[in-house]
Amino acid sequence: MLECKLQEPKVFRSVVEAMSEHIKECNFEFTREGLKMQALDSSHIAFTFVTLSATWWNEYRCDDEALLLGVNLETLLKILKCGPDNSLLALSYENDDDEVSELKVKFEVDRGEKKDVAEFALKLTHIDPMEEEVPELTWTNELEMPTQELFRIARDISLFSEIMVLEFDKDKLRISCSSKESTADYLVHPFEDSTNASNSVRMNIEAPFKVSLTTHYVLSFAKNKNINERVVIKMIDAETPLMFSFSMKEGSGICYYIAGRLTD
């Protein structure tokens, strides 16, 4: 049996919305430790990894050691959009029901002694488990900046070029693009905002390097403003995939791995 409840359905909706940017369907792996979702986009360019630990939920119970539920993200997102922000979201699954395999989604709104309830059932599908595993990487370079700022730059660059070049230096990040018609250059410097720490830019770059990324992937990662207003980019060098990370409470979060382009 599985049952988990959340008082902020908006946050879970944001997670599913972020995943559905790249992925049509994926396995939800429920264990006693929490929910994990990992999937590749159809082009196998970006790897998305989500952890929602048991303590991240307001209530969490999974009796099985591992429960793999194949979920169509587009349909789940449609259901989640039906839930009022002030409702209690409950996900449940009964694995003794052999006839229909479905994830139940319920929204409850307190009305004094009574509750308004909306219930949905999402039919599950079989998805072969992913064989790929994220390798352990020792990140040597790290940059942390406002998600909104990365979003703004990626959105602007997407108007000009499908490719963006990131040059990480010890004291600055240059993001640029060029096309036949124009070029664009952004310089981002580390700084501490003493009145609002969320505006700060922090970088710890041991060895400067340059990498080209496909713009629309960076833009879609940066849409995670609702997950965390800060994005952390972890790197090693131009030959190793970069990780874009948006953390949440209780060791939960969403992160993406993407490799740099070969040559442009």
Partner: peptide, 14 residues
């Protein structure tokens, strides 16, 4: 897009 390598090829190499 020939210049954008798949992430799986990296994972298998690492």
């Amino acid at each position: 897009d020939a210049n954008q390598p798949s992430i799986t090829s990296f994972f298998s190499k690492l």
